[in-house]
Structures are given as C-alpha cells and as structure tokens.
Write a protein that binds this DNA or RNA. Structure first.
Lengths: 133, 133
DNA sequence: TTAGATGCAAAAGATTTGCATTATG
DNA sequence: CATAATGCAAATCTTTTGCATCTAA
C-alpha cells in the first residue's frame, strides 16, 4: 500500500479509504465495475460507482491496472502484470481467464504488413470453459 | 443482390429497399452505424438508425458481414471476408485498416495453454496511421 | 487549511424495445 | 393478404460530468 501511495502522490493524487478498498478488491482475474462493487458490498463497503470509475481510471493512468474491452462492450480491469498476456472468455457464462502466449512473431509480421506505426494490440479468445462444455 | 435475397429468404427475411441500400453502403473497411447513416445521407437516402442496427444484426446472423468492437466501445461492421483478417486502428484519428496475418501457430499455442475449448478470437492492433505520425 | 476526492443527480452516447403503420412476397 | 420490416419514441445500459460537501496531507 505504501508503494501505491507513492505512485499516487507522484501525480498529486491521495490514498483515500475508497481507493484502498478498490485496490484491495482487484485481482489478476479481470472484473467489471459492477463486479467490483458487488465484491465490496459483500464486505459491507459501499462505494459509489462513479468513484469506482474514477479510481480505476487513475489506476490505469498509473499503470497499476489494465483495462480491456470485451464483446459485451463493458470494460474489465485487472492488476497490471509485468508480463503481457491475453484472455479467453466463456461464451456461455462470461468467465474470463488469462492465457500466456508468445506473440513476437505475429507482431513482427503485423509491422511488416501494415502502413501504420503499430504500438499495441489486443488479443482475446472466445470459447467454452470447463463447466460449460 | 439476388444471392442476398436468397440468403435472407432462407431465414424468412425480405429484401427491402433499406436493406439493399444498407448492403450497398457496406465495405471491406469497417464502418460504424453512424458512418453508414452519413454515407446514406450523402446519397439523399434517409434510413432510421434503428433500421440500420436491425439490418446489420440480420446480416451478421447470415454471416454476410462481420462485427468488431474497438476501444471506443462502438461496433464496426464490414463485408465478411472469406479470409480471416485483423485490424489496425489509428489512436489519433480512429481510422481502421485491415491487416492479413497467419496466426495458426498462435491459435495452436492458445489451445494448448488453456483449459477452455477455444472457438474464436479477436486480434486488433493500435498505432498511428501515415497521416498522424 | 486547501486542493483533491466523494457521492448524488443528471447527462451523454450507443444500442435495444414497443408499437402502430407500411410494404414485401 | 398475412407477416415481416420500418420509423418514431422511449427505454436501457455503461460511462461521464457538474457540483456541493467532505477529507487527506
């Protein structure tokens, strides 16, 4: 927590109670704003969704977490990993899991085949989880 | 057009004037609903956005077109290609371009590394187009 | 003490739904 | 002519903005 406080302070941000709770509820499993609020509710903590949105935006800015879009158009957030990775989402129950892949070759190919200066990418998989198939 | 009519008919759908116009305005360059409406407006054709949404949904169902989500959370639609491909989006102006890539190896790796039964994927790149960098 | 953070209400933007009217096959 | 499709209004859903109040440093 001390580390986060420093990182926030570097941008003039403060480490408040809601921010501590929101950070504590984050995970390596991607979660939506609604899921985070539910999680907090179970701990009897009530934080307005606007605060959650704003806090997550700050965390993304500080690269403490990563934001991803899924088919359903809602954003999901997870603790930033040092190692870049990807997701699989279950088409039935919506569960999201991480996958580690080495896509160096693919990026190289993309850079060759495009007139754009490529800076980042999103790679997501869809299918059925163990339970659902 | 005759082909489309057949494909629509197979599902009990009709080939109406709005549907013909919407289909004609589609492209291999991904477009949003708003962009399609603008395009039609330039040809002095007024079609309600609801109709555009519903028509595109039918076309997606018939696999005549493909829908993709971008960072901005809006859906873009393009003519379905026989060959699977991907996109690069300019971070500044939002322009979207296609990229062709062979990602067989990547898919294989994903299938190995996941407990999910993988069925599809989305791969999108982001960067700067020629004009913007 | 004072700038930044919170929570409520309300706005915004993309997409969907309900329903009466119109038009295709 | 029967049923599907259209267009308008209104609803929905996620996310953002405005503003008065509160609080961390």
């Amino acid at each position: 927590m001390v580390e986060i406080k420093k990182q926030l302070a570097a941008k003039g941000y403060r480490l408040t109670k809601p921010r501590q709770e929101i950070f504590a509820s984050l995970d390596h499993e991607p979660q939506s704003v609604l899921q985070i609020i539910e999680k907090l509710k179970k701990k009897n903590i009530k934080i307005d969704k606007v605060t959650v949105y704003r806090t997550l935006a700050s965390f993304v800015e500080l690269k403490l977490i990563e934001e991803t879009q899924f088919k359903n158009k809602i954003s999901v957030y997870e603790l930033a990993d040092h190692q870049h990775h990807h997701h699989v989402q279950c088409e039935k129950c919506g569960k999201i899991e991480d996958i580690c892949l080495d896509e160096k070759l693919l990026i190289q190919a993309a850079k060759k085949n495009s007139s754009f200066q490529i800076k980042s990418h999103h790679l997501e998989f869809f299918g059925l989880c163990k339970k659902c198939h």
